[in-house]
Amino acid sequence: MSEFQDIEKLIRLKRYEQPPEGYYGQFLEEFHQRQRSAVLRQNASDRLFERAAGWFTDFGNSHWLYAAAGAYLVVMTTALLRLSPDAPGQQPVADSHTSPQYEVASPAPVFQPVGNTTGTTVGEKPSSDESVQPVKLLREF
């Protein structure tokens, strides 16, 4: 005998609490109505997702294998597309220094003489040539 026998008896009285008469008959009808309205509310993308999920679930325990294979396929495809020489806006890495079509079109930088206060240019000996005019400074320091 349980020490809680009295309590168990009292609690068991709750089994007499029942729904209103006719409830169970209406329940199924309401269930059908709710199902129908749920189908109407559901848009096409939801249905597609649900079917995909159902199809995926049907694979059982092997679904992780399919998921891994799918992920691998996506990664490999992405990598191949990125490395493809035909991909727009991409340059083949190996040819970037040798191919003539990628030569720099602009001229190489030319040494520009910078004038000094004595009228000579840097790296040049002062010339006695009269055609060489001394550079006048526009600013005073």
Partner: peptide, 26 residues
Amino acid sequence: IKYTPKLYGLVYNMTSNHEDTNDVLQ
């Protein structure tokens, strides 16, 4: 039809409310 009465008892005695029980069961 078979399981509604049993499940009704379960849910009702946990919620103590008929309307809530109906919604949960649906």
